[in-house]
């Protein structure tokens, strides 16, 4: 056999593998690109939802509208997928969203699939809002009902009496409760309680969704994504919406999209800026944690307000 024949034979044998590898790599590239794009879609949708869900009422009161949040979320998602007017596609897309959670000031809501019997006695399957659940923790005969800040309700299970107020204010009424007495411990327990209770609920709902996904012909096994502790800590600081998007096929390689997004409405937590005069008599405005800042007596909510008083942004903290 001539050497050229061997070479040609070699090409014949290796060519299929080379092609296969190229196709696989292309698929992988496409899937990666798609998942970046989808993440953007999801982020925008959640951002819009958190913006839409806060309603300012009379007397500067704010309300959370769950319906508006979900409506804005899905509308943005539909718009991005280009299926604003395609009912069937909308329906199909919704099946990839196992759960949406709204984290409110004193509890959380879950929006997920549920089977129920309607007034005509027929079974219906639909995404519905589950009742609001509070952030509850029980220890040493006390029941703590936490909120997103240091406002807390404590129920003494023995005497059946309830106390309510900021941690600092009720500390002297409940001297034997370690959680109320110790500020650091209180923060720790509060955060842990909120994170664990939401996590547990969300995970259960995602697992439950597998039952319904099959009916839509989705073969993907829905499982809760890993959300790092840092992310959780970040997310429970304020009222927000948490949405999961899983199982959408990405290209032909068999990869599936699996992600979540959280948008905060930024009501509870506010940034403050402080104005302070420096040694040369010039006014500067600072962030809360600025190393130059010494006196926190002139407080402002926005940077614009600060600038309108004639203060310059500080060079150290760069607000």
């Amino acid at each position: 056999m001539k050497i050229t024949d061997i070479a040609v034979l070699f090409v014949f044998i290796t060519m299929p593998f080379v092609l296969l590898m190229r196709i696989k790599a292309d698929n992988l590239k496409y899937a990666e690109y798609r998942s970046t794009v989808l993440n953007r879609y999801l982020d925008t949708a959640v951002e819009d939802a958190s913006y839409a869900m806060t309603i300012r009422g009379i007397g500067d009161k704010t309300f959370i509208s769950r319906e508006k949040a979900v409506e804005a979320f899905f509308n943005t998602l539909y718009a991005n997928f280009g299926i604003m007017h395609v009912e069937t596609a909308k329906h199909a897309l919704r099946a990839y969203i196992p759960v949406i959670a709204i984290i409110d000031y004193d509890g959380w809501w879950i929006y997920s699939m549920e089977t129920y019997t309607n007034s005509k006695g027929e079974k219906e399957r639909e995404m519905v809002w589950k009742p609001k659940k509070p952030y509850v923790y029980e220890k040493n005969g006390y029941l703590y009902i936490f909120t997103l800040d240091d406002y807390v309700r404590v129920i003494d299970l023995k005497t059946k009496s309830a106390y309510e107020g900021k941690r600092r204010d009720i500390a002297y009424i409940l001297p034997d409760s370690e959680i109320i007495r110790d500020e650091e411990l209180f923060e720790q327990v509060r955060k842990r309680t909120i994170i664990e209770s939401i996590k547990e609920d969300v995970n259960a709902e995602i697992n439950e969704h597998n039952k319904y996904a099959k009916l839509y012909g989705i073969t993907y096994h829905f499982s809760p994504p890993l959300i790092s502790d840092g992310d959780w800590q970040q997310n429970i600081e304020d009222i927000g919406i948490l949405a999961f998007f899983q199982g959408l096929p990405l290209g032909l390689g068999g990869e599936r999209f699996n992600s979540y997004a959280l948008g905060a409405a930024r009501i509870v937590r506010k940034n403050h800026y402080f104005i302070q005069q420096d040694m040369n008599g010039i006014f500067y405005y600072h962030r809360d944690n600025c190393p130059v800042l010494t006196a926190k007596d002139r407080i402002y909510d926005t940077r614009q307000e600060c600038a309108l008083t004639g203060a310059f942004p500080c060079h150290a903290c760069n607000p």
């Binding site: 001539k2 050497i3 050229t4 061997i6 070479a7 070699f10 090409v11």
Partner: peptide, 10 residues
């Protein structure tokens, strides 16, 4: 020539 081509291909 054949050798060069086959080295390249192989």
């Amino acid at each position: 020539v054949a050798l060069v081509i086959s080295v390249f291909l192989l």
